[in-house]
Design a protein around this nucleic acid. Sequence first.
DNA 1: TTAGAATATACGTGTAAAGGAATATAAAGA
DNA 2: TCTTTATATTCCTTTACACGTATATTCTAA
Lengths: 129, 129
Amino acid sequence: MQSVFEIIAEPNRRAILSLLVSSEQSVGEIEHQLRMPQPTVSKHLRVLRDAGFVESTVDAQRRLYRLKPEPFQEMDAWLAQFRRFWSAHVDALERHLDRMDQEHMHRQPHGSSALIKKKTKMTRPEPRK
Amino acid sequence: MQSVFEIIAEPNRRAILSLLVSSEQSVGEIEHQLRMPQPTVSKHLRVLRDAGFVESTVDAQRRLYRLKPEPFQEMDAWLAQFRRFWSAHVDALERHLDRMDQEHMHRQPHGSSALIKKKTKMTRPEPRK
DNA sequence: TTAGAATATACGTGTAAAGGAATATAAAGA
DNA sequence: TCTTTATATTCCTTTACACGTATATTCTAA
């Protein structure tokens, strides 16, 4: 489980990361919001912490977990080499994500598709009038 | 092997994608440049094609593979939700990637670390004079 | 100091996927 | 047609990892 890419390959881990983007959360809060068994949450948090995606602080019996930026920046840096290539083809993405919506909606319980589409539209160049 | 994230979790596939960013390549060219057995290349290309990362055209007995943009855009869109969060912490990335260099250099045969660092520096804000 | 709450870890199991070796398919050229 | 080149696929084995269940650890509060 060396690389950041293997870490985020796991859907539950991506869900945890998306949850933590709003604010830090305890294990129990993650457990309830994502409806995963507690050992599952703890085990994924362990992996995420070892990989530097999150850090935790102690609050009584609770552990509060929050994001750390470095691995995300590393992923972004890897993606950067492809940006020149794809930036020409923005329109095709709309169709692609619409297809994803149809096929995978049930696997993405937290509306990330909608978020993706919204964000994508923001990066689209304005039509020249 | 549903999601784009699982596809790029495999290091050989990432190497193939990085190779194709310069230009389209035949299976044999990929095989030689990355020093992988031919069946390995073909199998990974199959996965990449099914996931929409690449497409191929026929050239005599050869198959020429090239990148397609959509999956990269989809990954970028997922990463976007974390950008607000990390954009404050740029300096920490330098240290992080320097550590990665020490630990993983032998696993990244194509100088992607150097490329990452270079690109990262480009996105760093200029010091105000 | 003991009970209960919150979290972490250990262990056993199933499964998916990556790799190697062999073989199949397809096209080109003699 | 037969051979050679280029690529794809099949079969088999191994390994890594995600999960469930059970148990351990850690801290609080009574």
